[in-house]
Simulated assay, not measured.
Amino acid sequence: MQAIDILDKLVSFPSVVGTPNDAIIDWVRSYLEAHGAVVHVLPGPEGDRANLFATLGPRDTAGYVLSGHMDIVPATEPGWTSDPFRLRKEANRLYGRGTTDMKGFLAAALATVPKFARLTLARPIHLAFSYDEEAGCRGIPHMLARLPDLCAQPLGAVIGEPSGMQAILAHKGKAAAKVTVEGRAGHSSRPDLGLNAIHGMATVLSKAVAAATALTAGPFDATFEPAYSSLQVGLLNGGRAVNVIPDLCEAELEARAIAGVDPRLLLVPVREAAEALTAEGYGVTWEELSSYPALSLPRSTPLAGLFCDLTGREPLAAVSYGTEAGLFQQAGIDAIICGPGEIDRAHKPDEYICTEELSACEALLESLGRRCVA
């Protein structure tokens, strides 16, 4: 199958983040097994979705991982001019949800599999397809935990997020959390009988703003824009009517950390401020929503040098968005970002990828495969 045909099939699966993914898993598994790959479907703890790991070549030798996520964000935005789950071709553009982020890379990798299968690989090529990346990289840790049983320690992992086929060496880490403050409802005319959850949350918000401001003073890493870690409250919900004392208020916040900083630690002052509210009679719940570390691959590593050679361009120092690459690096595997498409097309109506971008990705992966030949 050509990459366009594979992409057409992948786009037809509405594999929205947080939902079952058995349909796309079954199709990819059948395709890979038909080309001689050894495939492992690795169910996650949710019970209704899974990761997939496949190998071509000797599993007991160090090789390379082609990694991407199968999940997509919902396609509920207004502005779509065609069915987001049906690939539409106009000139050199292929429209559909996930074409750029990141089923285009999956399609290119799968289209290259028959060519890998015809090579005498001295080093293996692995395909690692994950779930729920769009929810904060929730699926990939379960696959990485199984990796020692599935293959020899890889030489490197290629994370095929859209990068314009330019290799990328670094991105920030991220942690997100939800805090819930419970008070006591009542009529607004008797505030002495109630406990205002929004007022309690105001203390938490004030601490979050102060923590965010403090981060602008450093530490700094000029690789990133901005060059410091950041924190923000992104969602806030509470109250039912202006004359009712609100008994519940919820907020979601995130921290983005430069390399060397644990993003979860940036949220600690906010969590402490929230938990201190229990002394005033509030109920407080803190829930970690997601967390992944920063990526920081030195330019001097063999993987960075290899991709400089394969792409014919110097790697880009860093990007602002996050990926699963930091989790590979945390697991002791060098990781680099390089994939077709542009990130600014993702998560938008009429998301698209260009045919020449798919072809360029296939060509690069073929070149990588030839580096693995005996």
Rank of each mutant, 00 (worst) to 15 (best):
A91M: 02
A241H: 11
M201D: 14
L297T: 01
A75L: 13
P162Q: 05
V319I: 04
A335Q: 04
E90D: 15
M70K: 05
F105E: 01
T285A: 12
F307V: 08
A109N: 03
Y282A: 07
C338M: 08
P340Y: 04
E33N: 13
A157H: 00
E90R: 15
E280Q: 13
S290Q: 09
E280S: 08
H40S: 15
A331H: 13
P340L: 08
V244K: 05
D247S: 14
G239N: 07
G326I: 00
D334R: 15
E288Q: 15
V179A: 00
R271T: 04
R370K: 12
I337R: 06
A108N: 12
D22T: 13
M143P: 06
L267C: 01
I159C: 04
D71R: 03
A255Q: 01
T99E: 13
T216Q: 15
E362P: 01
R146C: 10
L253G: 00
S12W: 14
P191H: 10
V319L: 05
T100F: 13
P226I: 04
I336S: 06
M102L: 08
A317L: 11
G283H: 10
G173A: 03
A241E: 12
A251M: 15
V113A: 15
G326S: 05
E351F: 12
G164N: 09
G57A: 11
D8L: 04
R123T: 10
A107E: 07
S67F: 07
A317Y: 00
R49P: 11
G305K: 00
L106D: 08
L94P: 06
S15K: 06
I72S: 02
L267Y: 07
P226Q: 05
G218T: 12
S163N: 00
P263R: 01
V270W: 02
P340I: 05
I336Y: 01
A279R: 11
T100A: 02
P302F: 11
T301P: 07
G44P: 08
A273H: 14
A176E: 13
N196L: 01
A255N: 08
P293K: 11
G98E: 01
V204S: 08
C308H: 03
